[in-house]
């Protein structure tokens, strides 16, 4: 059941998107998110969605994988949508009961919100599908390098992130195993009142934490044994380089942001 959370899972194929410079992919993601939050109408979101779809096609990520990333936040998105449908208010009222009101504006607004959230999630997971955690943190490290100037521990932070990402699948497997073990001993994790279920998590959480600490210890030893001594004197095997691919992606994203900004001030179909 936990295997469904595909966040932080690299999908290893070679593609145009995979080979983009991670630094720019991060910048592109931020630009994309800003763009979809600047968007005021469906047309703008449509353009963003089209670009994202293009990116997914070029990244050679199977549709199933993409949909799976959405499934994790489905509940959150539907919940947000429901609240907005009932509480948004508006002119054209279809149905009302007390303070609850379903309006045309509410439905449109909810739909807008849902699309926006989905684009956000898909775009973020596209980044993690196409970028290895290591190059992702390389990218972040490189982007944060100016902060070294004020003695911010950039390398350490990047390493912490990459290790955290690497241990996600391991800890997931472990959680599955512990849940299985506790169920085998008669633990009831899937039913009962919410309070009961939360209490039932404790016997899963404690072994998980213990094993995580033990692993951290072992990893620390393994890193020490391989001569790790912080970021000083360290070299990097993988160098980041700006290529023609990055240029194309940059032009597309810049075009998208520009288009959406223009649409914001000169709307074609205002919502």
């Amino acid at each position: 059941m936990l295997k469904d959370v595909s966040f932080g899972q690299y999908y290893p194929v070679s593609s145009f998107v995979h080979r983009l410079d991670p630094r720019f992919k991060i910048v592109f993601l931020i630009a994309f998110i800003v763009a979809i939050f600047l968007a005021k109408e469906f047309l703008a979101l449509g353009i963003a969605a089209a670009l994202l779809l293009l990116a997914i096609l070029f990244a050679r990520i199977p549709a199933g994988k993409v949909l799976r990333s959405v499934r994790g936040v489905l509940f959150l998105v539907l919940f947000t949508a429901a609240i907005n449908i009932f509480f948004h208010g508006g002119e054209t009222v279809y149905w009302s009961y007390g303070i609850l009101q379903v309006t045309k504006e509410g439905i449109l607004f909810s739909a807008f919100l849902v699309i926006r959230l989905f684009l956000l999630v898909v775009c973020s997971s596209l980044l993690t599908y196409t970028t290895t955690p290591v190059s992702l943190t390389d990218g972040i490290e490189s982007l944060l390098t100016p902060l070294k100037w004020v003695h911010f521990p950039v390398h350490e932070l990047a390493l912490i992130m990459s290790i955290a990402l690497r241990f996600i699948p391991i800890l997931m497997d472990e959680t599955d195993r512990i849940i299985g073990a506790q169920k085998a001993r008669g633990a009831n994790l899937d039913s009962g009142s919410p309070a009961k279920r939360i209490r039932a998590i404790v016997p899963v959480l404690i072994p998980l934490l213990l094993s995580a600490f033990r692993r951290a210890d072992e990893l620390g030893d393994a890193m020490d044994a391989r001569c790790y001594s912080g970021g000083k004197k360290r070299t990097k095997y993988k160098k980041l380089r700006f290529t023609w691919r990055d240029l194309i992606a940059f032009l597309l994203i810049a075009g998208l942001v520009a288009g959406i900004v223009v649409l914001r001030y000169f709307p074609v179909f205002p919502v």
Binding site: Y10, T132, P133, V134, S162, I163, R166, A222, A225, R226
Partner: peptide, 16 residues
């Protein structure tokens, strides 16, 4: 001196 430890899952730093 190089050491290879016991647990195959807690020695690797990177994912690849």
């Amino acid at each position: 001196v190089g050491i290879v430890f016991q647990n195959p899952d807690s020695q690797a730093v990177a994912s690849l």
